[in-house]
Design a protein around this nucleic acid. Structure first.
Length: 1051
DNA sequence: TAAGAGTCACTTTTT
DNA sequence: GTGACTCTTA
């Protein structure tokens, strides 16, 4: 009665014989529901395959009567291969599917019913854009509305919400009802009732504030949920779907059309599901539909509740317990405990950890035991305790581990592919990867390089941005041009660019001159050929000018693909690449970028350069990657894997790194990507315990090791901050009695490593333009508070902004601030000419709109609409709040010049002066949130030696007015008026009381800064990571002098 | 115990 | 921009 070809008959028999007792049970009980709990390394795939063989051998079921569902595609392929090895070609007739490929088949089989053949799966970028569109046109009062930046943080939450919504197969009604009942239930809950008496409330009172806060969150969620039908319509309109839609469509079809369902119910006699703990609500429902046809279905599910680590994808451990209780009668339960992967030491350590979890199947069904026993003969006798190692910081950790790995490989004790470094988050290994590469340790890592983060790519993008700006409006891209001229593709000394740029600024400063620009200045450079009178630089400038002019012209006439090609060729980029040592890599990068442009132009042939650049901007700000696989990722390298993706793998040596609290058990990181949810969404108010899920993840990572496991953490970060080790490490020490060891690398290696990682970045230093030239620039210089702030922040920034005067584009928030200033200035001016009566709110809004409409070039179209809405939202309540209270004896937009203090000429422009007799209160309007400004309002203290910018501004104004000679004003106070509400209808004005000490400090800063400016001390930057100009200098200056940070400069 | 201010960080990944 | 945690104070 052989059912398989003879050579496979033997294979099948052998795999049957190899089974241990528990496995045998799982394989041989082919009738009725079976639940197998299969811990790590217990031969899960093997029993699934063998069981299929058993079914085929013992029954008349045809191969296609078996449905085997897996979660991932890799799982499917592995399953098929394993089965082929046991039963031969019949393996191809067994239906092995992922949930999604199964649904796809159902859809294809019933295409007349579904009728959706022309739809495409939505890409990450498309999805983001679709959601942006969905939320863009919400009414002003919407809780999901975003008025300010290009990234809407709510968008991600809504994306995640809908993903979960689909995975759970929720409905709008269901959610609304749950939200309602949750809100109704709140007042009955302990945490919303005061437990002690105080002067504002007594014991037993409701916490009104807390309930309001929670209600607000729920209403936000409700609004998002209620938008779902609109989202669906938009998806249909764009002819796009997500993978989870496929499952929902099939579920709906099964529900509505009994014939379709019946067809599949009759088709399959045996069901097998792998990784059951990873299935979502909808997937489980799908299975349910298929098997509900039978009273006692032949359904076999395998999973391990302790390895459930994908709850963020809505994988639900509860599916296992639910399954067990649904088929309580006649369910055959098997627990596999013989482990064929690891030594007993490793299994025991893993056990001592996972036992701390309460949500375990063995705690519900206490008749079961899950203690794993080492069963692989070759490992049984090994006694190698796992190690727990503390390093001084991640740098030491990386160095020591690299060293150990080097030794393992060179001693030939193991293959690189049998070594794994397992980590929690990708960014933990960014530095480590560089170091390994430098040490020529071959790596195998799944993650690719995001080329949008490479500075090389960003230079090309800047060039494209410049072309787009200039093509749209002449001379609007000057600040980009300044940077572009510094690129290494060209060969121009930075000092020449600075001189040229200064000339332009000076011409423009004189209002009688026709406005000019850097673009015009370089195009007017005289000669194309170097000769006696023209330097080589001049001719290089001329060449670049010609190229740029050509490109700007071309951008309107050629396709995007052609334009890109021309840019690469003509702008000298190709030439540059060919002269670089890593030219193969740079070529790959260029090709990758070109491929992206090609595919986008393919999707939309009319795409403009501006549109493409906007898309890339969206991708960048939302962390959507443009990936390029670096060739060095090699199959025989050391494996670098995240704990999540390590599931299902095994290695001789496992280094589990970065086991600190902040990466493993802190909950701080969660919650940024999800709305708060009511806790009544499941029948028994089940909510995944985050700490337990993290512990399961740690357990998964540990159980990857066959023989050697090293768990490590750092006592500090790479600077001085103390880090805590993960709770799990403590539990392991307590549970196993293993003692932690301390190790560190030698200091020279560490400082080399840190140098390599740019962690202790040197401060950049630049060459200045001629001394006499700067002197000339500074001849009529007078210090304003903005300039003072700039200098104190970073002398290089000051040099570029205020000496060279690089044309600087106004940011969105600055432009909005100007609009608000203008509106309020006009409001007070009209009041004064109007017999001391403030004009109406409507007139104020008209003024606001007028400014916005006259200055549209400061915004993108989206920004303009958002900011207009925002102004209309905040200005009227601000007006209502203050209109009865404002002091009407005022001067607005007061310019004060020709003031001198301690020999320093200073000046300032004051928003508003309020008079009470001779006493003056200086008012300065601030847009932006009060919370963000609070730090800036503080005088120097502790670490902050220079004090906040707003504080200095207040003191500066006082000094300015005190030393002003013409009016005999008595400056008594400075006040900041925050135009945005702190809370609804609550506004903040912050009065700064200025002490004599404050005045002395700022006077000191003024004279000191003045002296430094006169001495031309702006060549050393602040060196901060986020300083635009310091980074610019580091990136582009070929002759930058670096100097080491000294103590005083650190502050 | 409650509430406000200050501080810190912004995954993981499959179809 | 948001929220969650910690610290301080009453």
């Amino acid at each position: 009665m052989a059912k398989f070809p003879s050579q496979y008959e033997l294979a099948f028999q052998q795999s049957l014989e190899k089974l241990n007792a528990a496995q045998k049970q799982a394989v041989e009980n082919i009738e009725g529901p079976v639940l197998v709990i299969a811990g790590p390394g217990t031969g899960k795939t093997q029993i699934l395959a063998t069981r299929i063989g058993k079914i085929l051998q013992d029954t008349d079921t045809p191969a296609h009567g078996i449905l085997c569902l897996t979660y991932t595609d890799t799982g499917r392929v592995e399953m098929r291969n394993r089965l082929f090895n046991i039963i031969g070609p019949a393996a191809y007739r067994v239906n092995i599917h992922t949930f999604h490929s199964f649904c796809n088949e159902v859809i294809q089989d019933n295409i007349s019913y579904f009728g959706r053949q022309s739809m495409e799966a939505i890409s990450e970028l498309e999805e983001l854009e679709l959601f942006n569109e969905l939320l863009k046109n919400l009414p002003i009062e919407s809780r999901l509305k975003n008025f300010k930046s290009d990234i809407n943080y709510e968008v991600k939450k809504v994306i995640n919400l809908y993903a979960r919504y689909k995975k759970e197969n929720w409905s709008v009604e269901f959610m609304n009802q749950k939200i309602d009942s949750y809100l109704q239930d709140l007042p009955t809950r302990d945490e919303f009732i005061y437990k002690v008496n105080s002067k504002n409330f007594k014991k037993g009172d409701l916490k009104v504030g807390a309930i309001k806060e929670e209600t607000e969150k729920m209403e936000k969620l409700r609004e998002a949920v209620n938008l779902y039908p609109k989202y669906e319509a938009l998806m249909r309109e764009k002819r796009r779907y997500t993978f989870d839609d496929m499952i929902l469509w099939v579920l709906k079809a099964f529900e509505e059309n009994n014939n379709i369902l019946l067809n599949y119910q009759e088709k399959y006699l045996y069901f097998l599901v792998d990784e059951f703990q990873d299935t979502s609500g909808s997937q489980k429902q799908l299975l349910q539909y298929l098997i509900q046809y039978w009273e006692a279905p032949n359904v076999f599910v395998v999973g391990d509740d302790d390895q459930s680590i994908f709850s963020f994808q809505d994988a639900n451990v509860k599916n296992i317990t639910d399954f067990a209780s649904e088929y309580a009668n006649g369910l055959h339960k098997v627990v596999l405990t013989e482990n064929y992967r690891s030594t007993q030491n490793i299994l025991d350590a893993a056990k001592s950890l996972i036992e701390k979890n309460k949500e375990r199947f063995v705690n519900i069904d206490t008749t079961l035991s899950k203690d794993l026993v080492a069963a692989k003969v070759s490992l049984k006798e090994l006694d190698i305790p796992p190690q727990i190692i503390e390093y001084p910081n991640p740098a030491n950790e990386a160095i020591c581990i690299a060293h150990k790995i080097e030794e393992l490989i060179s001693s030939g004790r193991t293959q690189p592919s049998e070594i794994a470094v397992i980590f929690r988050n990708h960014r933990q290994v960014e530095d480590l990867v560089n170091y390994f590469e430098k040490k020529n340790i071959r790596l195998n890592m799944k993650r690719n390089i995001n080329i949008l983060e490479l500075s090389f790519v960003n230079k090309i993008l800047t060039l494209l941005e410049y072309i787009a700006l200039e093509a749209n409006k002449e001379y609007s891209g000057d600040e980009k041009l300044f940077e572009i001229l510094h690129f290494a593709f060209f060969n121009i000394p930075p000092i020449d660019i600075a001189r040229l740029s200064r000339q332009v600024a000076q011409k423009n400063f004189n209002w009688r001159n026709e406005k000019t620009s850097l673009r015009r200045a370089i195009s007017e450079e005289e000669s194309a050929v170097p000769d006696l009178f023209n330097t080589a630089e001049t001719s290089e400038l001329k060449r670049i000018s010609n190229v740029l002019e050509e490109l700007i012209k071309a951008s309107n006439n050629v396709t995007l693909q052609v334009l890109f090609e021309v840019v690469i060729r003509e702008a000298g980029i190709l030439n540059y690449i060919l002269n670089q040592p890593d030219k193969p890599w740079l070529m790959e990068v260029i090709t990758c970028l070109f491929k992206f442009i090609k595919s986008e132009t393919h999707k939309n042939p009319d795409i403009t350069l501006q549109r493409l650049l906007d898309m890339i901007k969206t991708m960048k700000s939302n962390n959507i990657r443009l990936n390029l696989e670096k060739v060095s990722a090699s199959a025989d390298g050391v494996n670098l894997v995240t704990a999540h993706s390590s599931k299902g793998t095994e290695y001789e040596y496992v280094f589990l790194i970065g086991c600190n609290k902040n990466t493993w058990d802190d909950k701080k990181s969660s919650g940024h990507y999800d709305f708060s949810m009511p806790d009544n969404l499941t029948s028994d108010n089940y909510v995944v315990d985050e700490l337990e899920e993290a512990r399961r993840l740690f357990y998964v990572a540990m159980t990857r090791a066959k023989t050697h496991l090293a768990i490590s953490y750092s006592s500090n970060d790479n600077s001085t901050k103390v880090l805590e080790r993960s709770e799990f490490v403590g539990e392991l020490i307590e549970g196993t009695g293993i003692l932690e060891k301390k190790e560190h690398a030698d200091e020279n290696t560490v400082s080399d490593y840190l140098q390599l990682q740019y962690t202790n970045k040197p401060i950049p230093e630049i060459g200045l333009i001629d001394k006499s030239y700067i002197d000339k620039i500074l001849e009529n210089y007078s210090l304003s508070v903005t300039n003072l702030n700039n200098y104190l922040e970073c002398p290089i920034k000051f040099y570029y902004n205020n000496v060279i005067r690089i044309p600087a584009a106004m940011s969105e928030s600055m432009a909005f601030g100007s609009a608000v200033h203008y509106t309020l200035q006009t409001l007070f001016e009209k009041m004064k000419t109007n017999g001391n009566v403030f004009p109406s709110k409507e007139i104020m809004l008209e003024d606001f709109d007028r400014f916005m409409d006259r200055n549209t070039e400061l915004f993108t179209k989206d920004q303009l609409n958002r900011r207009k809405d925002y102004g209309r939202k905040i200005l009227p309540p601000y007006y209502d709040f203050y209109v009865g209270k404002w002091n009407k004896i005022v001067n607005v937009e007061v310019n004060i010049r020709n003031v001198e203090v301690n020999g320093v000429p200073i000046n300032g422009k004051l928003d508003k002066l309020e008079f009470t007799g001779k006493s003056v209160n200086v008012v300065d309007y601030k847009t932006g949130r009060y919370d963000n400004a609070r730090k800036k309002l503080k005088p120097p203290s502790g670490d902050d030696k220079i004090g906040g910018d707003y504080w200095r501004q207040a003191v500066f104004y006082k000094i300015l007015l005190d030393n002003e000679k013409y009016n005999n004003w008595n400056a008594v106070s400075s006040e900041f008026d925050f135009v945005e509400p702190v809370k609804k209808d609550e506004y903040k004005t912050e009065k700064i009381t200025i002490t004599n000490e404050d005045i002395q400090i700022v006077l000191g800063q003024i004279t000191d800064t003045w002296k430094k400016i006169q001495n031309h001390e702006f060549s050393k930057g602040c060196g901060k990571d986020d300083c635009h100009w310091c980074n610019f200098v580091k990136e582009n200056h070929k002759h930058v002098i670096f100097h080491e940070t000294t103590e005083e400069e650190e502050a």
